[in-house]
C-alpha cells in the first residue's frame, strides 16, 4: 500500500510539476517530485482511513438499494417524518438501516459477517439471531462454463481475524447429483479482515460438462474462523 501511495503521489507530482506555473511556490512544486515523507505518510493514512470509513459508508449506501425503492414508493411519508425534528431524523435513519438490513437478509445478500474469536457453535444448536447468508451465482450457468459472484466479508468487531482459508462443500442438486468442491474456487483463497474492515472475495463455480440442469447448493466455510459460513447456490441450465 505504501508503495502504491508513493507511486501515486509521485505520478501526481510529475503531472503537476509539468503544469506548474510561476507562483510563489512554483519552485517547490517542481521539488515535490521527490515526494516528501510527510506527504507519503499522509497519502497512506488517507488510503487506510477511506477504506475503513468513507467506503464503509458507501457500502452501507449500496446496501440501501432496496431503500431507494422504499424512498421512491413512499418518499413523502419518509420525508415528512424526516422534517419533524432532530430526534425523528435519527429515528428515520435507524428505520432505514433496519429496513435495509431486513431487506438484505430477506434477499440473501452477498454480505458475510466475520468476527474474530467467534464462539464455536454447540453441536446441533442454531446460532441465536444469526442468519446464514446465501450467495447465489447470478443467472444460469451452462455445463462446461463458469459462474462467478463477489462476496463481501465484513468484520464489524473490534479485533481483526486470523488468516483464514475459504473452503466449499460439494454443491448438491435436487436429484443428489453433485458439483465437486474442487470446482469451487476463491480469489484470494486466503485472507484476513481487520477490525471494522471489509474484504472482497471472488467465488467461481465451474460446472462440469454433463451436469444436469437444476439448482445446486452447498456451504462455504473458513478454516480457523468458526463464525464464517454462507450458503452457495448455482443454477445450472
Amino acid at each position: 500500500m505504501l508503495r502504491d501511495a508513493t507511486e501515486r503521489v509521485s505520478a501526481t507530482s510529475k503531472r503537476a510539476a509539468k503544469a506548474a506555473t510561476a507562483t510563489a511556490l512554483g519552485a517547490s512544486r517542481r521539488a515535490v517530485a521527490a515526494a516528501p515523507t510527510v506527504v507519503v505518510k499522509a497519502a497512506t493514512i488517507l488510503e487506510e482511513e477511506v477504506a475503513m470509513g468513507l467506503r464503509a459508508v458507501q457500502r452501507i449506501e449500496q446496501r440501501f438499494l432496496d431503500v431507494d425503492a422504499l424512498r421512491a414508493k413512499d418518499s413523502d411519508a419518509v420525508m415528512s417524518k424526516f422534517r419533524r425534528d432532530a430526534h425523528d431524523a435519527v429515528d428515520i435513519i435507524l428505520d432505514v438501516l433496519t429496513a435495509a438490513a431486513q431487506s438484505v437478509g430477506a434477499q440473501a445478500g452477498r454480505l458475510v459477517n466475520v468476527t474474530a474469536g467467534a464462539t464455536p457453535l454447540r453441536k446441533g444448536a442454531a446460532p441465536d439471531g444469526i442468519q446464514v447468508p446465501a450467495l447465489r451465482v447470478p443467472g444460469r450457468v451452462t455445463p462446461g462454463s463458469t459462474g462467478e459472484i463477489a462476496m463481501s466479508l465484513e468484520n464489524p468487531g473490534d479485533v481483526g481475524t486470523t488468516t483464514f482459508t475459504l473452503q466449499a462443500s460439494d454443491l448438491v442438486g435436487g436429484s443428489g447429483t453433485r458439483i465437486p468442491s474442487a470446482s469451487v474456487t476463491f480469489n484470494p483463497p486466503t485472507l484476513s479482515v481487520g477490525a471494522r474492515e471489509a474484504g472482497k472475495v471472488s467465488v467461481r463455480v465451474r460446472v462440469p460438462d454433463g451436469t444436469p440442469a437444476g439448482t445446486y447448493e452447498g456451504l462455504v466455510r473458513a478454516t480457523e474462523l468458526e463464525g464464517l459460513r454462507a450458503m452457495l447456490a448455482v443454477v445450472v441450465g
Binding site: 503531472r15 503537476a16 511556490l25 517547490s28 512544486r29 515535490v32 510527510v38 506527504v39
Partner: peptide
C-alpha cells in the same frame, strides 16, 4: 510540503 502537495492535487 503538504501545502505544495495540496496545490498539485488541486490541479487534478
Amino acid at each position: 510540503d503538504l501545502a505544495v502537495a495540496a496545490l498539485n492535487e488541486f490541479e487534478e
